[in-house]
């Protein structure tokens, strides 16, 4: 048992499906807990036995390397048995696969399912069908809560606070679950959130989410403390949402010129993987005085350990040999 996991925090949910609905206290406590795991992860011996005997299944209906690896490491460092399942998203009816797979896995008595799925609401649907904890590792364009938490931890460790900071989220807001989770989290924690995107990549009624909306990047970045870049999916680059990569980079790619509108010490974040030369200038991406992209990856493991930690308190306790009448 580590110092981190003995922190008493009250997590009043059985799953982690989204940031929307989490209180400021819960978010702060998760970040505090994650801070402890950052320290632990920097030690030579990173292993604890908090989840010993517990089973974690990473159920990924979309390809992902870094998120899945991050969850896998988080589970293993806590002592859980971790299984990865990748389900080809090309199967004819993804939905049927989702429910059927979930029910099958559920019968194997996992303690936590980590789910990524291309459909908004998939994690919620799955959580209604299984009797273990569910962590949403990204559902369609809806939420990606652990990404927002790791972004918040990165910001808090670099800036000492989140409240009062001006954060610009730039790029494909419309299709981004990272943007939605970050908007909810940053608003809850008292940051001022701006969205910067071409109008075709802004969701309708975006301003109703409690943000300021900009279509001009320099105006959007003016005076910002944090610049969060989003990945532009290749299939959206040509013709459908933006006319060309060249035009997109000209108006919405982050380079030194546009960045100069932000505060001189503004941090650059990106959830990865980056499209160099599309949403971010390659040299800028490598400038370790400005970007915290690798910090984000490190924080990711710690945040996921914290999430598993708090959820484990609500893991099934029943011994099924005794519970079944």
């Amino acid at each position: 048992m580590t110092a981190a996991s003995s922190t008493k925090i009250d997590y009043p949910h059985s799953h982690l499906l989204g940031i929307e609905g989490l209180s400021r206290e819960v978010i702060s406590a998760l970040l505090d807990l994650a801070d402890g795991y950052v320290a632990l992860n920097r030690r030579a011996d990173k292993k604890t036995d908090l989840l010993r005997g517990r089973t974690q299944i990473n159920l990924f209906f979309e390809s992902s390397t870094r998120t899945r690896t991050s969850f896998e490491l988080a589970g293993k460092r806590l002592g859980a048995d971790v299984i990865n399942m990748s389900v080809a998203s090309s199967s004819i009816k993804k939905g049927e696969t989702l429910i059927d797979t979930a029910m099958t896995l559920n019968a194997m008595h996992p303690d936590v399912l980590v789910v990524r799925h291309p459909d908004s609401g998939a994690a919620k649907l799955l959580s209604e069908k299984v009797n273990c904890a569910v962590i949403n590792a990204g559902d369609g364009s809806h939420e990606h809560p652990t990404q927002a938490l790791l972004d918040a931890l990165t910001i808090r460790r670099r800036r000492g606070r989140i409240e009062g900071l001006a954060v610009a989220i730039c790029g494909d807001i419309m299709h981004s679950r990272v943007a939605r989770s970050n908007i909810h989290l940053l608003n809850t924690m008292g940051a001022r959130v701006r969205l910067v995107a071409p109008p075709t990549l802004l969701p309708v009624a975006a301003e109703r989410l409690g943000v300021e909306v900009f279509t001009d990047m320099r105006a959007g970045l003016a005076g910002c403390d944090i610049v969060m870049m989003l990945r532009l999916q290749t299939e959206r680059m040509r013709g459908s949402f933006v006319p060309s990569v060249r035009e997109y980079f000209h108006f919405h790619g982050l380079d030194r010129e546009k960045l100069s509108a932000a505060r001189p010490d503004a941090l650059i974040m990106h959830p990865g993987p980056m499209n160099r030369g599309v949403e971010i200038d390659s040299l800028l991406a490598d400038d370790i005085t400005r970007t915290v992209i690798l910090d984000q990856v490190e924080m990711g493991v710690a945040v996921r350990q914290a999430c598993l930690d708090v959820l484990s308190r609500a893991f099934p306790r029943l011994d099924h040999n005794e519970a079944r009448p």
């Binding site: 929307e20 908004s120 369609g140 809806h142 939420e143 309708v204 989410l209």
Partner: peptide, 8 residues
């Protein structure tokens, strides 16, 4: 707004 929040 609701569709935007739900990511639909």
């Amino acid at each position: 707004e609701i569709a935007t929040r739900l990511g639909l």
